[in-house]
């Protein structure tokens, strides 16, 4: 059957195209422009081709070394975040009440950390974890555990991971809770009659229902932790040394600290491509799994 073609529909798409062009594509082209040239200010540009990219992707160079170190730190951070936040979020969702006034109370408490601006979260933890005046830092040191995030890389990592878990586990828990709420009571009653154990109920009823929201939660938490900037910037500023310098922090140092605009532009493009690639893989895997299930 032939569908009628209405060229007028383009008029509806046009505003969006224009907005995206001016707000995203044109600025991105500027970055592309910078990434293939070198500049020393005064609007003087020198063609550099793919030079910056070659340097960036070669770990033996100074720039490439920095980039890969930061990238591995980023990946380690995301991995830790997922390993902690996903199981913890599921556990929190499972222990949330299903009926009564406690539901509303729990939802409000869980949503609170999500409503705090990111740099405020950073500031809270920056003070909370200080070993001289911060409640946490002071208490941990008093317990005899040496802890100082400004001097010790391990302490710094523990601090930013704990901060992220505190900030974002709620999101995973709320998403999982939404999945759990879609399970009718009859399923739990039937499972009791079938004599199912707590684990069997989780494995056969709750996990399958949470499956989709969990994929979304993993995607969101991965992307967010991979692009993390504000909180570690406020707490550690990337230190001690470079131990918590993630790609985004390094990018700002490169662009606004050293004014290496060409290198920074090349780094931006590669960083962006990595994120797009991961998103694409995720999307493909999710749609594949959906297709298989049906």
């Amino acid at each position: 059957m032939d569908k009628p073609v209405n060229q007028g529909a383009w008029l509806l798409v046009l505003p969006v195209l224009l907005i995206v062009a001016f707000s995203a594509i044109l600025p991105l082209m500027t970055v592309v422009n910078y990434s293939v040239q070198d500049t020393f200010g005064n609007n003087q540009f020198f063609w550099n081709g793919i030079g910056w990219y070659q340097e960036l992707l070669d770990p033996s160079t100074d720039l490439g070394g920095r980039f890969f170190d930061a990238l591995w730190r980023n990946l380690l951070f995301s991995l830790l975040i997922l390993l902690i936040e996903v199981p913890l979020g599921i556990a929190v969702a499972l222990s949330m009440p299903r009926h009564g006034w406690r539901v509303a109370a729990t939802l409000v408490v869980l949503a609170l950390p999500l409503l705090i601006p990111w740099n405020v979260v950073g500031t809270i933890w920056q003070i909370f974890a200080r070993e001289d005046i911060g409640l946490l830092g002071w208490a941990v040191n008093r317990l005899g555990i040496p802890y100082n995030y400004t001097a010790d890389p391990l302490s710094a990592w523990v601090t930013i991971v704990a901060m992220d878990v505190w900030h974002w586990t709620s999101l995973v828990a709320l998403l999982c809770y939404a999945g759990l709420r879609s399970i009718p009571d009859a399923f739990y009653q039937a499972a009791r009659i079938d004599g199912a154990s707590r684990w069997a109920i989780f494995r056969n009823i709750q996990l399958p229902k949470m499956h989709r929201v969990l994929l979304i939660a993993v995607l969101l938490r991965f992307m967010d932790s991979f692009m993390i900037y504000t909180e570690p910037f406020v707490v550690t500023g990337g230190g001690p040394g470079n131990s918590t310098t993630f790609v985004s922090i390094d990018l700002v140092k490169l662009a606004l600290g050293q004014f290496d605009l060409g290198k920074a532009a090349a780094l931006s493009i590669v960083y962006n491509l990595i994120i797009l690639a991961v998103c694409w893989v995720f999307y493909t895997v999710m749609t594949r799994m959906d297709a298989q299930r049906n």
Partner: peptide
């Protein structure tokens, strides 16, 4: 006695089937 300890079964209004099995 809880449900699982009684020799009884129940069929509900909406069919309960374990999706993944």
């Amino acid at each position: 006695l809880p449900t699982e300890a009684r020799n009884i079964a129940q069929v509900f209004q909406f069919p309960v089937v374990y999706d993944t099995m």
